[in-house]
Amino acid sequence: MSASPSAPKTDFAARIGAIFRPSILLGGLSIALVVALYWLVATRPGVNPALVPTPPRIALTFWEELRSGELAINTWASLQRVMIGFIIGSAVAVLLGFLAGWFRFWGYFLNPLIDAIRPIPALAYIPLVIVWVGIGEPSRIIIIALAVFKPCVVNARAGMQEVAQIYVDAARVLGAGKVRVFWTVALPSAVPYLIAGMRTAMSTGFLALVAAELIAAPTGLGFMIQNAGQYFRTDIAIVGIVVIGIVGSILDQLAKVTGQYLTKWAEVRRS
C-alpha cells in the first residue's frame, strides 16, 4: 500500500507519488532487470557489438528510424493490418460463438466445427492462404483474422454457455421475452468472457502479424524485423521487437481499461 498522506497533497505531488506506486515500480523493475542482463551480455569481452548491440546503440537506432519516418510507416502499416484483421476475425467469432453457446440447435451444429478448429494453429493456414489468395494484403489480413478468430469464438461461446439459469429465470418471471433475455441478461453476463477473449485475440493477432508480414510484405514491423535480419542489422530487429511489445501492451491496456469500464459491476479479486 502507498502511504496515505495526512496533509492534502498538491496535484503535482500526487502525480509524482503515483509514479512510485509499488505496482508501477515493480513492473518497471522487471523490464529494467531484463535490459540490465542483456547489457551485461552485450558488453562481455568477445561479444561482437555489431551483432549484439548495446542498449544505447539500440536507442540511437530507434531515434534514427523514428526520424527517417520508417518506423512510423511500418508501425502504422502493422497496426492497420492488426486492427482490420481483428475486427473481421472477432466479429465473425462473436457471432458464431454466441449462436453456438446460446441456441441449442446452433450449438449442435457448430460445436464440432469450433472444437476441431481449436487445436489448429493459425500459422498452419499460411501456405494455403498464399496458394489460394496470393501474397497481397488480403492474405495478411486473412491470417490475422484467423488467428484472432480462435480465442474469440471459444470465449464468446463459453460466455453464453455460462449464463446463470437463475438470471434467465428471474428475467422471464419479470416479463422479459426471449429477445430481451438475450440482450439484457445473456449479453451483459458474457461481457467478461468477451473481454478476456478479445485480449487474448489481440496478442495472438500480433503473433500472426509478424508471420503474415514474412509473406513478401512491403511494409510493417514484421517486414522490418525480417529485412533487418537479412542485413545483420540486429539493432533494427530489436527496435522492431520492442515497438511490437510497446504497441501491443498499449492496446492491451486500452482493452483492459475498456473491459474494466464495461464490467465495473463485476466482483474483482484483489490480490
Binding site: 437463475i166 438470471y167 429465470d169 428471474a170 428475467a171 418471471v173 419479470l174 416479463g175 439484457t184 441478461v185 451483459p188 453476463s189 461481457v191 464490467t263 459491476w265 463485476a266 466482483e267
Partner: peptide, 16 residues
Amino acid sequence: PKLGFVFQQDAVFPWL
C-alpha cells in the same frame, strides 16, 4: 409477470 417470483438464490442482476 402478474405472478411475481422471488428466488431462494441471489437473483439480483449484478450488471444493473
